[in-house]
Write a protein that binds this DNA or RNA. Sequence first.
DNA 1: CGAAAAGCTTGATCCTGATCAAGAATGGCC
DNA 2: GGCCATTCTTGATCAGGATCAAGCTTTTCG
Lengths: 231, 231
Amino acid sequence: MRPGERPEIANLPLFREMQEGQRDRIFSGSFLQAFPPQLTLFELGQHPDFLHVLVDGLVELYAHSAGRDTTMRIVEPVTSFILAAVITDQPYLMSARTIAPSRILLVPAALVREVVKDDCALMQATMRELAQAYRDMVRALTDMKLRQSAERLGNLILQQERRQGGSSTVRLKAEKRLLASLLGMTPENLSRAFGVLGGHGIAVSGAQVTITDRAALEAFSRPDPVRDDLA
Amino acid sequence: MRPGERPEIANLPLFREMQEGQRDRIFSGSFLQAFPPQLTLFELGQHPDFLHVLVDGLVELYAHSAGRDTTMRIVEPVTSFILAAVITDQPYLMSARTIAPSRILLVPAALVREVVKDDCALMQATMRELAQAYRDMVRALTDMKLRQSAERLGNLILQQERRQGGSSTVRLKAEKRLLASLLGMTPENLSRAFGVLGGHGIAVSGAQVTITDRAALEAFSRPDPVRDDLA
DNA sequence: CGAAAAGCTTGATCCTGATCAAGAATGGCC
DNA sequence: GGCCATTCTTGATCAGGATCAAGCTTTTCG
């Protein structure tokens, strides 16, 4: 682990409130590993061996069924992932691959389950993290069921913009094909969706998206005040 | 509370392992209330006041956006619901209504949060419940993104049949319009989907669905060994 | 029991998004 | 810098599912 990284990881909501000793126990049993891009980290159906914490890079979580793939989530640093599989000790429901050179902290799943039992603060943090993850999935599912493609894209842009600091500018962190899969559409249709949004307050240039007319974009995308707020 | 009910509730995975005293604290602060059908219990966006435990009846959780509704989950007794909103103390992401006369145990949200903090067993159960709920949502989302309508219906029937005891017979517990909404399609299309499945091993008569040829149904629906198993 | 309402099914048409097929742009790499 | 591979875009066509419009069945309730 490089200097400065341990505190960064220790500061994650998941580990922040833990007892110092228990945190050491977690860290000393874990190891940080570097992965090249396009490497499969684990596959759907496997038994979870490690809780993963993305320290640096970019990871895609995806699912497949009947020959088709779909992106479920794009993980940005610094974030833990597949916590639910580790806690329930049940097979992964998603596969994971790096989409950029990445460094990942691997925490043995059994160790997580054990320390969780002993450290109430970690348990509470885990509980909160899972509740949040659940809510995110509820949002994603209603999005998928109720909105059509261009609207989904519009809302994703609004949401990214807020997360990137509200500068009316969004830099897409992943390829558009990946974004399309995340939004549940084909790359062709994503292109067309960007085209549609061109008439509703955005301008695209490569991976750079600029919101030229927020009111128009919001009128078109109808962000839900409850569902889309990061409150 | 009627005799026999308290033990039934106390036996829920959520409350089973708690300290006796803490459980009393929960129960003595809660109350059981009866609701007529078609009554809205709470609305999306509201601040969560109670953890709900459906003791008897049937409840629909649904979301809306841009004038449209969609059913997110049909809750059968005995089950708790909207645990995540209570834990995070954030607005409901779904609305709830009774679809049959129902009796619901209402546990004040603040009380839940407080007792959770004091009782590690409850916290652990909560954590597990949330992890399971998260995984269910992951399944629902991939289902929605990757399968088409008749396939979704086929899998739902297979899944219900397993849950109802494997007698090759499924009794639909809700109206078909509701089922359609849960599956993310229109009632018209659900009818047609049943029609399609008629050629793939099922026979429908009102709310009674019979699996006449499991192999055919599975060949058509391609249940995912990992995702659909209740393991 | 019988009428009204609600739910379900079936058919016809429409629309969103998928697929197929080329080009244009971008990026990696020697 | 220039070539090759990949990604992105644009156009044409197709298909799954939505919508619209009736009939039909079941339930509800006086």
